[in-house]
Structure formats: C-alpha cells, structure tokens
Design a protein around this nucleic acid. Structure first.
Length: 276
DNA sequence: ATGGCGTCTCACAGACGA
C-alpha cells in the first residue's frame, strides 16, 4: 500500500494535473490540502473515474482538505476533537479530515500558516498543533496498536536544513522555536516522521515559492510530512518526494510526498543535483 | 526595490499564501 500527501493549491485549477498524477503514481490513498473549494465545487469525478472513493471538506475558497482512496474509505471525520477556530467570533476552518483506508486512519491536515510571529494567526497555529497532539496522545493511550497517519502540510520546517537559507527566515514563521517545539511534541507523543530517513537532506524540499524562480534555484522548504503511530511506522518501508510534479506550467507550489508500506515500491528520491 | 507568482472572489483589487 502506498499513501501520498499533496498540497494541491486548488483542486479545480489542478484537476487535470491531479488526475494525471494519480495515473502516473498509482498510489492507493491520496490526502490533499488547499483544495480551495466548497464541497459542491470539488472535482469528484477526477477520483471516481479512476476507481477511488473520495471525501472532501471545504467551507469557502480558503483551505479545504480531502482524502481519495481505492482501498476503502470508512469512518470519515470532519475536524478533530478540540480543534480550535480562528477569527472573531472563532470559526473552525476546513483544515482536517480523516478516513480509515485499508485499516489505516489517515488524517489530511492543513496546519495554519501563522502569517507573522506577532499575528493572532501564529498563536492559533500553536493552539491548533497542541490540540492535535492532545487528541493523538489520548488515542494512543486508548489503543497503542492503532494505525494512524497524520499527513499533510504542517507549515513548519523542523530543522535548519529544511530551508535553503536560515538567514532568509530570520524573524519569520515556520522556523521559530515554538513551532518546532510543537512539532517535536507531536513526534514525542508517538507520531514519528517517516519520510526524512528515506529522503535525507540537505537540499531536499517539498515546497518552492512560485516567485523568483525559487524551484530552479533550489530554494525550497521541507514542510510536508507523514507522521505515523508506532504500529504504522513498523510497516513503512520507503518514502519519496515527487519533485518532478513541481515542474512545468500549472504545477502546485508543493510536491507530492509518498510513503510505501509493507515493501511496496516507492518513487525515486529527491536529491540535490549539486552540492557546494 | 514590499517587487516577485498563483488562485480565489458579490473580480478588474485585495486577501492569502510561506
């Protein structure tokens, strides 16, 4: 079984490309973020035409998360217990959806960006991650054998190597100590990040800004991850980042990340062409 | 050089993204 996560940056603008990628990648489960659609606008046929079931959660043109699966899609959940909202009054956003696919509970997560360190969105981001951790820890305490995958766009670069130049991120979100601590607490709660060991850096990223030729200049960030509960982690045998998908016209600014279970094939690994 | 690029909407400007 192969599970992928991909911030598609609009399901409608990317519909054809998502279909082509499914044909090429042959994954069993695809978790998507930033679908940027309400439920009735989501291009379901891209998935159903190819034999996938799909669940989508979108409330507006912002955010939006979905899971497509050809190994079953059961027990769909919208949001997680205690998931905080944003704004005044606080509104819960479309940033989390779960489904059990082939015995694995897959959570497609779009962690809040944070915007700026002194912006209310940043505190929201930290609250959101803490609530996610609490729920995950409680779930593992209940059932230590649970197969849970927290996948998606975490909007955190956990290590200095996860950005092309730490100096360029001075004072910016995604690399601050509290964000990294929140990520580490989730890992410490039992949800190990399983992609990095198969796609070692430096210079290995999952996101490249559209601006300033960031992709060809290899100025990216590693911010998309797969976190696995202990029972699931034991099944992981490979992972890859499909940076080919970032190429060409009409690409998302994020690349798909794939995890292989039980010896399934994994895509070629993203590697820097040159080192200085 | 607050540019740059892409996507969205009660669109032709502003919000959001990271």
């Amino acid at each position: 079984m192969r599970i992928a996560t991909w911030n598609v940056n609009s399901s409608r603008a990317r519909a054809e490309r998502i279909g082509d990628w499914l044909d090429r990648s042959d994954v069993d489960v695809l978790a998507m973020q930033e679908t940027k659609a309400r439920d009735h606008q989501f291009p379901e046929s891209v998935f159903t035409d190819r034999g996938y079931e799909v669940a989508h959660h979108g409330l507006s043109q912002w955010n939006g998360v979905a899971i497509a699966s050809r190994v079953g899609l059961e027990d769909v959940r919208i949001g997680f217990p205690g998931q905080p909202g944003f704004g005044e009054p606080e509104e819960r956003e479309a940033r989390a959806i779960a489904a059990t696919c082939g015995g694995v509970q897959v959570w497609s997560l779009y962690v809040p960006n944070g915007r700026e360190v002194d912006h209310p969105h940043y505190a929201y981001k930290l609250r959101w991650l803490e609530a996610l951790r609490e729920g995950g820890a409680a779930r593992l305490a209940e059932d230590p054998e649970a197969q849970i995958a927290y996948v998606g766009d975490f909007n955190i670069a956990p290590q200095d190597d996860d950005v092309w130049d730490m100096a360029a991120f001075e004072g910016l979100t995604h690399v601050t100590e509290p964000e990294r601590a929140a990520f580490a607490k989730l890992v410490d709660a039992g949800f190990a990040e399983v992609v990095r060991e198969y796609t070692p850096g430096p210079g290995v990223y999952t996101y490249w800004d559209y601006k300033g030729l960031a992709f060809p200049k290899r100025k990216g960030m590693r911010i998309d991850f797969v976190l696995a509960s202990p029972a699931l982690r034991a099944r992981v045998t490979g992972a890859s980042i499909d940076r080919e998908e970032r190429k060409g016209k009409g690409a998302s600014d994020h690349a798909p990340v794939i995890v292989a279970l039980d010896g399934a094939d994994s895509q070629p690994v993203d590697r820097p062409q040159s080192k200085k």
